[in-house]
C-alpha cells in the first residue's frame, strides 16, 4: 500500500546545516533507504548518501534514524508510525562531509594500525589444520560488515574528541580479539590492545553490541574476554607460565 511519508533529513556540510522536510510516496514493504532514494529521484537530486548492497551486507548506509544509529537498508518503514515524520541525521561521531555522508577515515587509520595475521612457527604455511570449534569464535567477529555504527555509538569517542587519538574503538577491539583467538596466530594482541589501543578506556556499557546489525556480541565475546586475559597475563604468574608459548611482538 502506498502512502505519503514525511522525512526530516539533515542537509548541510562541514560549515553547518539544518533539518529539511520532504514528503515522498512510499510503499509498505520499503525501507528507510528506499525513502531516501525517492527523495533523491523526486525532490533533491544532489542529496548525499552512501549505499551499496541494500541488503545489510556491505555496511555503507549507516546513519542515525530518529536518533538511533542504524543501517538505512535494514530499517523497515513498517516499524515506524505512518503519521509521524522519520528524522535522519548523519553519524554524529564523525565529521560531516555533506548531508548524510560523514568522514569515516578515523576507522581506516585505526585499521592500518593493526598488525597483520602472523602464522605460528608450528604451521607457517597454508593449508593449515584448524578445527571448526577453534575457528568459530574468530568467525563470529569476522562477520563484521564495517558499518562503524559501534564506533559511532561508543561514548568514549562520541562525546570525547580527545580520545580518538588513543582509542581504536569496538570495531577494532573485535579485530584484535579475532586475531588473538585465531588458532594459528603467533602475536600477543592483548597487551597491544590494552596499552596502545585504549582497550582500558572501554567501560563495557554494551552500546556497541546493541547497535550491531550483525548481532555480534562485541562486549561479551570480544571486549570482556580480552580485558580478562589482559588481567590474567598481568597478575597471574602461574597461569602466565601455563599459557601456550607465543612469539614476541
Amino acid at each position: 500500500m502506498t502512502y505519503d511519508l514525511k522525512l526530516r533529513i539533515w542537509r548541510g556540510d562541514a560549515k553547518g546545516g539544518a533539518l529539511q522536510d520532504f514528503t515522498v510516496p512510499v510503499d509498505d514493504g520499503e525501507v528507510v533507504l528506499d525513502a531516501v532514494h525517492h527523495v533523491q529521484a523526486l525532490r533533491a537530486g544532489d542529496l548525499s548518501v552512501r549505499w551499496n548492497c541494500k541488503a545489510g551486507k556491505c555496511g555503507s548506509c549507516s546513519a542515525e534514524i530518529n536518533g538511533r544509529p542504524r543501517l538505512m537498508c535494514m530499517s523497515r518503514l513498517s516499524d515506524f508510525p505512518k503519521d509521524e515524520p522519520i528524522t535522519i541525521t548523519p553519524m554524529r561521531t564523525f565529521p560531516v562531509i555533506k548531508d548524510l555522508v560523514t568522514d569515516v577515515s578515523f576507522n581506516y587509520v585505526k585499521a592500518a594500525e593493526v598488525l597483520a595475521f602472523t602464522p605460528t612457527a608450528e604451521q607457517p604455511k597454508a593449508p593449515f589444520r584448524m578445527a571448526q570449534v577453534d575457528v568459530e569464535r574468530s568467525q563470529e567477529f569476522r562477520k563484521c560488515i564495517e558499518c562503524f555504527l559501534c564506533q559511532d555509538v561508543c561514548h568514549v569517542v562520541r562525546d570525547h574528541e580527545e580520545n580518538k587519538q588513543a582509542y581504536a574503538g569496538p570495531r577494532f577491539f573485535l579485530r584484535y580479539a579475532e586475531l588473538d583467538m585465531h588458532p594459528n596466530d603467533a602475536l600477543d594482541r592483548k597487551k597491544l590492545a590494552q596499552e596502545e589501543r585504549g582497550l582500558g578506556l572501554c567501560n563495557i556499557t554494551k552500546c556497541c553490541t546493541e547497535v550491531c546489525p550483525e548481532h555480534i556480541k562485541i562486549t561479551d565475546n570480544a571486549i570482556i574476554p580480552m580485558k580478562e586475559r589482559v588481567v590474567d597475563v598481568k597478575y597471574d604468574p602461574i597461569r602466565f607460565l601455563r599459557r601456550k608459548p607465543k612469539a614476541k611482538v
Binding site: F128, A131, Q132, V135, Q139
Partner: peptide, 20 residues
C-alpha cells in the same frame, strides 16, 4: 584459496581440520 588462508581468512573446516 590457500593464499587467503595464509593471509588470515577463516574458512569453515572439515572434521579433519581442512577447508570445507
Amino acid at each position: 584459496v590457500w593464499e587467503l588462508e595464509q593471509w588470515g581468512a577463516l574458512f569453515d573446516r572439515t572434521p579433519e581440520g581442512l577447508i570445507s
